[in-house]
């Protein structure tokens, strides 16, 4: 009895290494329809343990639908889905005990105080009050809401509620964190702080699944992602791979004024490798943006403004769908 070394205990407690090879989530031909409307149209993907996996696409692409099927709070119409080896349909409650779910729409209990919200939510996982007392303080620090602990949720700003919702999702130390549009409603600084913290959670072994329609969020947060549109997967890879495959290194943004943007395209023929015309600007894709810009000047085209930037996932999406992520 006396020689129980701390090491032997560690083996039992190590959370992530038990299933290195098996994906934590795998979907095959996953489908959801509402009558004639196809929300998710037979998608396949796998999420590996410890990675940060993203679903990038515009609103209505089927991202939240997919998330809810993973958590078993939405019955799928067809296909196979396994989360930690379980079927979230019949085994939804057991699956959810392993998950942290951050829904797109906050659903905090507004009658309760901030700290109480965390504690009550922990109770749903059968966690003891003493455990939750300490946990709630950690989570308040995570959400930077220590000063608001005793306030009613009603009195919080939208951003604060969002942070509290995210912290609440961590109360059961989930293996997988499902984040549905996590930073919607947060100010830029709060977004960066959150991305940093989620990154460190991932380092600590938590698998992240993130839906977003913000390309910067996908770039910052995701190791690997699928680009989703109309319930279908358009592309899959790391942000860097996707940009390399579907876009050029750089992009030149030219603004000629909304009246001229469309007509000037003919005169840009041959500049860069591809041209996209948006209502407010023209995008010229090229590996060397500066050289492009010089060519534009040489042809005597005088844009009102011009800008050379690196390609982003926004460009990937535009290339794949012909549309912007945010309409």
């Amino acid at each position: 009895m006396g020689d129980l070394s701390p090491g032997s205990r560690d083996v039992e407690l190590t959370p992530v290494t038990e299933s290195v090879v098996e994906p934590v989530i795998s979907a095959r031909e996953l489908r959801k329809t509402y009558g004639d409307f196809v929300a998710v149209d037979g998608i396949d993907f796998e999420v590996r343990p410890g990675e940060s996996f993203g679903l990038l696409g515009p609103n209505g692409a089927g991202k939240s639908t997919t998330m809810r099927m993973i958590g078993g709070t939405l019955d799928r119409t067809g296909g196979d889905l396994a989360v930690l080896g379980m079927d979230p349909g019949p085994q939804g409650p057991t699956v959810r005990a392993h998950l942290g779910v951050i829904p797109q729409q906050d659903n905090l209990d507004e009658e309760l105080r901030v700290r109480e919200n965390l504690i009550m939510y922990g109770r749903y996982f059968g966690l003891s009050r003493s455990f939750l007392a300490a946990k709630a303080d950690e989570l308040l620090a995570f959400a930077q809401l220590e000063a608001k602990a005793k306030e009613k949720v009603q009195s919080l700003s939208g951003g604060m509620k969002r942070r509290l919702t995210i912290a609440r999702g961590l109360v059961n130390e989930p293996k997988i964190l499902l984040l549905d549009e996590p930073t919607t409603g947060l100010d830029p600084q709060a977004r960066h702080v959150l991305w940093d913290r989620l990154f460190r959670l991932k380092e600590a072994g938590t698998t992240l699944v993130v839906t977003t329609h913000f390309m910067d969020e996908a770039e910052q947060l995701c190791d690997r992602l699928i680009v989703v549109d109309h319930g279908r997967i358009m592309a899959e890879g790391s942000p860097r791979e996707l940009i390399r495959t579907y876009s050029t290194r750089e992009v030149v943004e030219l603004r000629f004024g909304s009246a001229r943007n469309a007509t000037v395209v003919a005169e840009l023929d041959g500049v860069g490798s591809r041209i996209e015309v948006l209502p407010d600007r023209v995008l010229v894709y090229a590996d060397d943006g500066e050289a492009c810009l010089e060519e534009v000047a040489r042809r005597g085209l005088a844009p009102v403004t011009s800008l050379v930037r690196r390609s982003s996932l926004e460009d990937v999406f535009l290339r794949l769908t012909g549309r912007s992520l945010i309409d």
């Binding site: 959370p15 005990a97 966690l127 950690e138 989930p174 600590a204």
Partner: peptide, 19 residues
């Protein structure tokens, strides 16, 4: 902030027990 204990404190029961 100690994200490591936030993700895994070692104090919580297993998820199977929670379920």
């Amino acid at each position: 902030l100690d994200t490591t204990t936030l993700a895994y404190s070692g104090q919580a029961p297993s998820h199977a027990v929670m379920a």
